[in-house]
Design a protein around this nucleic acid. Structure first.
Lengths: 131, 131
DNA sequence: CAGGATCCTAAACGATACTG
DNA sequence: CAGTATCGTTTAGGATCCTG
């Protein structure tokens, strides 16, 4: 896998390179649940179960997994209090708030333009995705 | 062109609903290759093979599939000229340029902050994703 | 309550071969 | 050239049970 490790600064367009590390981060952030977690946490601190309730349809496993990935990237702060029963809170780090803003902007655009988009879909009677 | 804005607009927070149609669009746009295709097409019109060469690591199948999804959403315009050999061009629609800007903004943020992010990762010696 | 461990299914993905 | 079709592999995702 690793051959000539060039430690040069990632330039614009690096994204198109196969091994660009940005791709992984991008995937974590834009994953099915990643987006929702980031946007959800913009409105404050949540406990695991609260977050799970807020985000419709997410399983325990995926929520935990998503939170771990985002924590590893430094976007989410996990604060556990050593009590019984366990009390764990999740919030955005400063960096997390920055990405979240970007992600929210994209999500907002889509929500705001859903009708235009759906209209396009209808017009083409898309038979590819619906199948 | 749409004057009839009287239909109820999806409000903020719809995204958290299980059946929110935005989620699908969001997935198409933020999918592994969707992001790259959108950003790539910001710099102009491309033929299939050119696009494939530009985007490192994408297979024919996935590129075709991604393009079709984005076309169905009305983000990508496919222009085929009935000649032999086939000549097909892909470009962004107006709507496509709008989403692409959002997506690019996110991608740029990540590329620009990669070092900060990687530093976080190192600091935590993430053992979850690498495993 | 917050998750880890396990098991399983569905979907994504990729390589190759083939066609108009 | 620009795909489609097929197949095999990998990953995402979910259900359930279990523990501190």
């Amino acid at each position: 896998m690793n051959n000539t490790e060039t430690l040069d600064q990632p330039q614009r367009g690096e994204l198109f390179a196969v091994a660009c590390p940005s791709r992984q981060v991008l995937q974590n952030v834009t994953s099915r649940w990643g987006v929702l977690v980031l946007v959800a946490l913009m409105s404050g601190t949540y406990r695991f179960s609260d977050l799970r309730r807020k985000i419709g349809g997410v399983s325990e496993k995926m929520l935990a997994q998503t939170l771990q990935a985002l924590e590893a990237d430094g976007f989410v702060l996990r604060t556990a209090r050593p009590v019984v029963p366990p009390y764990v809170e999740y919030s955005l780090t400063h960096m997390g708030q920055e990405v979240a803003r970007e992600v929210e902007s994209l999500a907002d655009w889509i929500e705001g333009n859903l009708y235009r988009i759906m209209a396009q879909r209808q017009a083409r009677e898309s038979e590819l995705q619906a199948a």
